[in-house]
Structures are given as structure tokens and as C-alpha cells.
Simulated assay, not measured.
Amino acid sequence: MSTTMWIILAIIVLVVIAYIICYNGLVQKRNQAQEFQSQIDVQLKRRTDLIPNLVETVKGYADHEKQTLADVVKLRNSVISADSLSEKVAADNKLTGALRQVFALAENYPDLKANQEFGKLMEELTNTENKVAYARQAYNSSVQYYNTATETFPRNIVSSIHHFRKMNFLEVPEADKQAPQVKF
């Protein structure tokens, strides 16, 4: 073989290796984003599993608050039955508002506030809220890395050939973007 053939062969090998590296990198970034999406589902499931215990604990103290508790259960079920991630997040945002009302009940019922089971459940839900927030942030970060990879050269060529599609960020609803008002 001539030197020219060796050079052409080396170039072809380098192009194939670069192509494989680009493809594998895109798959890795897509899978990481899907993993974080799954983590959101896991944390939302954990949260919905805690809610029946919270509702039962509150029921004994706040008998006339049945509508608030019924709303929490209804919203919990809407999170469970949601099909897409965006539907789950929207339902979860509504559930967060309803849970704030339940936590506010503790202020009106000193015995409830002192109940150890209620305290444990509130702590668990707070920890889960933090985990959901982290999972959402991690998901958006991984989506940003993935989308950047699919749009930059030379990976954009590989991504278009293999139909890697842009992923959507989780967005905060407009109502949640407003700063809470604190009044003294």
C-alpha cells in the first residue's frame, strides 16, 4: 500500500472514531436527562405516599377542615394519574399549594402542632420538597447539556442523522414566580 492509501485509511478511522464518540456522548447526555426525569417521578411518588398518613393525622384534630383534606387527596390522585412529566409537575404545583393550607392548620390547632407524628410527617414532606426541587434543577441542567450537545458542531450532524430531539425544560408557572408578600 502506498503512503496516500495509509493516510486516507487513517483519516477514515479518525472520522469513524470521532463519529462514535459524538454518538455515545449524545446517548449518555440523553440518558442522564431521562434519569433525572425518573428521579422527579420517584420523589413525587414518595411525596404522594406520605400524604395519606398526613391526612389521617390531621383528621383527628381538624374535623371541620374536611374539604381542605379532601382537596389534598384529590390533588394527590391527580399527581399519581398524570401521564407526562409536565402534567405531573403542574398537578404537583397545585398539591404544594394545598399542602401549605394543611400546614397552616397546625397554627390553629396547638395539639396538632405538638403531635410527634404530624411533626415527623411535616419534616419528611419538607425533605421530599427539597429533593423534588433538586431533581428538577438537576433535570434542567442535564437537559441544557443535552440540548447544547445536539446543537453544536459536529454533534449536530450526528444528532440529526440519529433523530436526537431537543428536550423541554421544566418551567415554573407564572403564579409561582411572584415573590410571596410578607406583612407584619
Rank of each mutant, 00 (worst) to 15 (best):
T4M: 10
T4E: 13
T4F: 11
M5S: 12
I7C: 08
I12A: 15
I17F: 14
A18Y: 11
Y19G: 11
Y23E: 06
N24V: 10
N24D: 11
G25H: 10
L26C: 02
V27E: 03
K29P: 06
K29C: 06
R30V: 01
N31R: 00
Q34D: 08
E35Y: 07
S38A: 11
D41K: 04
D41N: 14
V42M: 02
R46S: 13
D49Q: 09
V55A: 09
Y61W: 01
H64Y: 15
E65G: 06
E65Y: 08
E65I: 07
K66N: 07
T68L: 14
D71T: 13
N77K: 08
I80A: 07
A82P: 00
A82D: 01
S84C: 03
L85H: 08
S86R: 07
V89H: 10
A90S: 12
A90G: 02
A90L: 03
K94H: 07
K94D: 09
L95F: 06
L95C: 02
G97W: 03
V102M: 11
F103D: 00
A104I: 03
A106H: 03
D111T: 11
D111C: 01
L112I: 05
F118R: 08
M122V: 08
L125C: 04
L125G: 07
T128W: 04
V132M: 06
V132Y: 05
A133N: 12
Q137E: 12
Y146Q: 06
E151K: 14
P154A: 09
P154G: 08
R155D: 11
Q178L: 09
A179N: 14
V182G: 01
F184I: 13
F184K: 06
